[in-house]
Simulated assay, not measured.
Amino acid sequence: MTIRSFWVKVFIAGLVALVAVLVILSLWLADTRKRLGESRHIAEVQTGELKDLNLLLTRKEEEIISLKKKLSMSTIYQSLPDAEDPVAVPASAQAGGRAPEALPPIAGIKDLALNESVLNFRIENSMPPGEGAARGRLFVVFKKQGSEIPHPASAMKDGVPTETMRGLPFTIRNFKPMNIPVPQAMSDWENLTFYIFDDQGRMRLSMPLDRKEIQ
């Protein structure tokens, strides 16, 4: 064997080895690229699933908030006539006229408590979901033995405040704790009525309560 033929064989062997290495690297790169593509696809699928899940959770939260709002509206104090009491019919209806349209409440009163000479309570938004904050004016009329005193002070007609813009203003999205001092002349009050008017002066709540219902 000559020196030239030896180096030719070495060169050929090296070339074959290099080709083999290149083939192996090509196969490895192809497999890696395939795995990366699969991983990217899986990541995209999982991202889409997470977006769908977040959207579903958002909708469920909105449904829960709406349900809580409805439950809150159903538990707001409401005055119901006694079964034995006759239902009062407006004079306009008795005369054949059209009865006034009943307006839905914009806010309700909950969690009443009497602390010495201060009446504590919570006013809650009763607007349907999506209609924003409730705005209006609040009165509390304290009564005893045929006399009555409104807070804040206002002219009265048939036991109802007529100067509606004198009421305590409120703007609430959810609820707001409030407290009202009991007028000194009404320290022994027997019952009271909450009145809520909207910004147009229309009555949106009339809620009478006996003192025994609070203490």
Rank of each mutant, 00 (worst) to 15 (best):
M203E: 13
G159H: 06
R135H: 00
S74Q: 11
V23A: 11
L192E: 05
T2M: 06
L114Q: 09
L192F: 05
A134I: 01
M73I: 10
F175A: 02
L57V: 10
K143A: 13
R173F: 02
Q78V: 12
P105K: 01
M156D: 00
L18G: 09
V182P: 04
F139M: 02
D31L: 13
R33N: 10
N191L: 06
M1E: 10
A83E: 15
R135P: 02
I123M: 01
R33D: 09
S117P: 03
G132R: 01
V10H: 04
M1Q: 11
S187Y: 03
T164G: 04
L71A: 15
N191D: 14
A93M: 00
S5D: 15
L18H: 06
S79H: 13
P129W: 05
K68M: 12
L56F: 04
Y77T: 04
S79F: 15
L50H: 08
E190N: 11
I76D: 07
P81R: 12
S147W: 11
L103H: 08
S72R: 04
F194W: 03
M73T: 06
A91N: 08
V140S: 06
M1G: 15
P104M: 04
I24N: 11
P81Q: 10
L138S: 05
A91Q: 08
A93H: 00
S39K: 15
L57N: 13
D199H: 07
S206F: 08
L55D: 12
R59A: 15
P208L: 14
K110S: 13
A155F: 04
P86D: 02
V45G: 05
K176E: 01
G167I: 03
P181D: 03
I3F: 12
Q46H: 09
L67F: 07
S154H: 12
E213I: 04
N115D: 14
L57M: 13
N120R: 04
E116K: 13
V140L: 14
A102Q: 07
K68V: 07
A102S: 07
R166M: 15
V141H: 05
D198T: 03
L36T: 11
G48W: 09
M156H: 01
R173M: 02
G48N: 12
A102R: 07
E61P: 07
Q78D: 11
L18K: 04
D158N: 12
F142S: 00
L119D: 04
G108P: 02
A91P: 06
N54L: 12
V118R: 06
V182I: 15
K60L: 14
L205S: 03
Q200R: 09
T47W: 13
I180R: 02
L71H: 10
L56D: 11
A93E: 00
N120F: 07
L15H: 11
E148N: 06
N54E: 09
E190T: 15
E148V: 05
